[in-house]
Design a protein around this nucleic acid. Structure first.
Lengths: 110, 110
DNA sequence: TTTCTTTATGTCAGATATGGTATACTGACG
DNA sequence: CGTCAGTATACCATATCTGACATAAAGAAA
């Protein structure tokens, strides 16, 4: 993705939960954004299943609570690497990742 | 992953193709390394299916041939982000990614 | 209300990834 | 042998990501 388009994405904040805000993106861009959203949702869901607070998950990751919050909101400062490593730290398997990636994006906005 | 372990990984070069070299890693670390290898293999395979050279793929990515080579060898300087964005640029879908991730790692070493 | 717990947001210095360039390697074809 | 297309490797300046910290906000329970 070139810089120009990246900036276009960042300008939108890509914290959106529905498909409408993805309009105007190329298929690759849309897929990339949706992937990030799916992973971030999975992090929150799995963390809650494990009955962990963001602080506890941060300790698992040797990171900080604020970064976990950003991970769960798919903040633009969070890489796919960190999203995936967070899921792995929560005990997710490769199969789990595949399931998350292929599953439809949950509606964040009611 | 903390720095210390990252360095341990990098020291190993993680360019390995079989499971033996993954000994000594925690399950998360092994999953992370295997994930990178699967994605890098998929890039090379998909690129060849598309009958593209590394130079042509680099143009698609607005990147350079050298970086594509590193992507395909899962070089330590390549992020998951770039691996995934490369696959998406090659036309891979979320389903394709899921398939790659859940598939077993091809034996690079005969 | 106040207090406590949890999560969100902003900032920044240091760490890591990136594209670009140069150069080297490899195999195929004369 | 030499030449060429394709790929691999090394390096660097710049861009981006990261953990840490501060602080705000939201929610629960008194």
């Amino acid at each position: 993705m070139d810089k120009e388009k990246k900036e276009r994405l960042e300008a939108k904040g890509w914290k959106v939960g529905s498909a409408e805000e993805l309009l105007g993106l190329t298929p690759e861009e849309a897929a990339y954004v949706e992937l990030r959203l799916k992973l971030s949702e999975a992090v929150r869901q799995l963390r809650k299943e494990r009955h962990l607070t963001q602080v506890q998950l941060a300790e698992l990751l040797h990171s900080s609570q604020s970064r976990v919050a950003k991970v769960e909101s798919a903040d633009e400062s969070v890489s796919l690497d960190l999203l995936v490593r967070t899921l792995l730290a929560l005990g997710a398997s490769a199969q789990d990742l595949a399931t998350v990636i292929s599953a439809p994006l949950a509606r964040a906005i009611a």
